[in-house]
Design a protein around this nucleic acid. Structure first.
Lengths: 117, 117
DNA sequence: GTAATATACAATCAAATGGTTGTATTAGAG
DNA sequence: CTCTAATACAACCATTTGATTGTATATTAC
């Protein structure tokens, strides 16, 4: 089992890439179907180059990949990276759970001055 | 059941707030225990005001809340918002699943020229 | 081969971000 | 009451971001 090690930089890029509505839309659409760069560009009220840049940001975050097909570049969403993001959020949940457990044990022992010593 | 409606702006702020290592660390720590602004500020190699700003970003994203306790402001991580982020990512998963289902049905029918018509 | 389409990429620019220092306010300690 | 600790907030600055236009390259269509 691969212990996927995301660097802090990687995590920064990952969440940053998700922090834009256009980019989230591109990810959603390319998770469902491969779409060419120009097809994507046609859908948004901005220049071709702007959409290109958004795709580049997503690529650097590994949220999409591009594959040449003739003169087109087909963009495909990468679910693996989404799952890695989910894992990161799961970890936050676990931390919170640890707080609950501590509070629980305090309550169970009727708030002694130092539980577990 | 509350259909938590996050605006695109809200989602932008949420993921953007998570796209910084210091801020993620603050969220982690305040999910485990409430910590004052100055206690947090002491932990990082930057000015008090810089940490204050990071906390402000987290507050706007509703990832933490602040509560006055005397002259201190106790910062507490907000798990609800983390879960909302998880929900958003879950939705991406579902989209991907729809692609798989379509591919499955195509394979099952041996790639007819127009399945389902 | 030539024209049109799809993409890549550089230069530029305004706005947002992430940091700083300095000043003001508020609450607790002595 | 006075001093100090904790916070708030404004002003400033360098860098990054998100967008633009313009130019170059590659592939398909005719």
């Amino acid at each position: 089992m691969v212990v996927l090690e995301l660097s802090e930089q990687d995590v920064n890029r990952l969440f940053r890439a998700l922090a834009d509505a256009t980019r989230r839309d591109i990810v959603r659409r390319t998770l469902v179907t491969d779409i060419s760069v120009s097809q994507l560009a046609d859908s948004y009220e901005m220049s071709f180059a702007a959409v290109q840049k958004h795709i580049a940001v997503l690529e650097e975050a590994h949220l999409v990949t591009k594959a040449a097909r003739g003169r087109e570049r087909m963009v495909r969403g990468n679910l693996v990276r989404i799952r890695q993001a989910q894992r990161l959020l799961d970890h936050f949940e676990e931390l919170w759970r640890s707080r609950m457990e501590r509070l629980d044990s305090l309550l169970a022992e009727g708030s002694p001055d130092s539980p577990d010593t």
